[in-house]
Amino acid sequence: MSQLARFADKVVIVTGAASGIGRAVLVRLVSEGAIAYGIDVNEAGLKETVELAEKQAAAGGRASFIAASISDEQEVKRFFQQVVEKEGRLDVLVNMAGILRSSQTTETSLAQFMEVINTNLVGTFLCCREALPHLVKTKGNIVNAASTSVYFGHPYMAAYSASKGGIMSMTRSLAWEYIRQGVRVNAIAPGGIATPLAAAQNQRMDGLDQSLFMHMTRPDQLFGQPEQVADVVAMLASADGGFMTGEVVKIDGGVHN
């Protein structure tokens, strides 16, 4: 784990922190001194994340969690208020929460489509909206989660791809809207990363044309690790990324070059 202290005394909110990339990000930032709050609907997973983070904590870093849904406007308002009232500030928002539902487009109901849009895109919007007034005060920053699906065709993922495309566009719009107020807004676009989300998708691939997925994986079938994505998030959210805003950084092991 890093011996850096780039987030000492920084207050951070990480959504989707119960597992996968969100968990790895929270653990990484706490290891660099962050006062980090994990947000997720999975309370048991959040507790595990906090335990892992506390083992790696350094430079005054500490971890807490608030179980909440980012697609619920009132819950989003509540947890932002809780964090700012307790800590007095907010420096970084990392939006990693998201869901994926793979299916033939003609078999995707409107309810299924909207479930993905509401969690991934609307949830990211709500968190950004609530965070921005606080980040203006601290000259803080946001890191959102897009996907390589915003650049390349990912079959059976119409809702997911649409949500991630919206996140990419929103990231760039917010970056320019707040550039004079000193708030940076960037995003990452992970490809094949070994997460519970990816594993769940693989279990739902029966009956789908497997050949359409070949352009999405490396020849050696190697998947990236959540910690490798967390490395990039930590850079973007720290002073090391201080001259970056409106960027969407691809992290896919070279698959989509």
Rank of each mutant, 00 (worst) to 15 (best):
R6K: 09
D9S: 15
V11H: 08
V11Q: 10
I13T: 08
I13L: 09
I13A: 05
G16R: 09
A17P: 07
S19F: 02
A24Y: 10
A24E: 03
V25P: 13
V27D: 08
R28T: 06
L29M: 13
S31A: 13
S31I: 04
E32A: 11
E32M: 07
G33F: 00
A34L: 03
D40E: 08
D40Q: 02
V41I: 15
N42V: 01
N42E: 04
E43C: 04
A44T: 09
T49H: 06
E51H: 00
E51M: 00
A53I: 02
E54L: 04
A59M: 05
A59C: 01
A59S: 07
G60N: 03
G61H: 04
S64P: 00
I66T: 06
A68V: 07
S69G: 14
D72Y: 08
D72E: 14
E73N: 12
E85V: 00
E87A: 14
D91T: 10
D91R: 14
L93W: 10
M96R: 09
A97R: 06
I99F: 11
S102F: 10
S103A: 13
T105R: 00
T105W: 06
T106W: 04
L110F: 02
L110G: 01
M114Q: 13
I117S: 07
N120D: 11
L121E: 11
L121P: 04
F125Q: 04
F125C: 02
F125W: 08
E130T: 00
A131N: 00
L132G: 03
H134W: 07
H134A: 00
L135N: 11
V136W: 02
K139R: 15
G140E: 03
I142A: 05
V143Q: 01
V143R: 01
N144C: 13
N144R: 07
V150A: 15
H154G: 15
P155S: 13
P155T: 12
P155C: 15
M157R: 15
M157E: 15
S161G: 15
S161F: 11
S163A: 15
K164I: 08
G166R: 03
I167Q: 10
I167D: 11
I167E: 11
M168K: 14
M170I: 12
T171K: 10
R172D: 09
Q181P: 10
Q181F: 12
V185P: 06
N186R: 09
N186L: 07
N186E: 02
G191Q: 08
I193L: 08
A194M: 11
A198V: 12
A199M: 13
A200H: 05
N202C: 07
N202F: 05
Q203R: 12
R204H: 12
F213V: 04
M214I: 15
H215C: 07
R218W: 01
Q225E: 15
P226N: 05
E227Q: 12
Q228K: 11
A230S: 13
V232K: 01
V232D: 06
V232R: 00
A237G: 08
A237K: 01
D240V: 10
G241R: 04
G241V: 04
G242N: 10
G242K: 11
F243Y: 15
F243K: 12
T245R: 11
T245P: 12
V248F: 08
I251Q: 02
D252A: 12
G253S: 09
G254V: 01
V255F: 05
N257S: 12
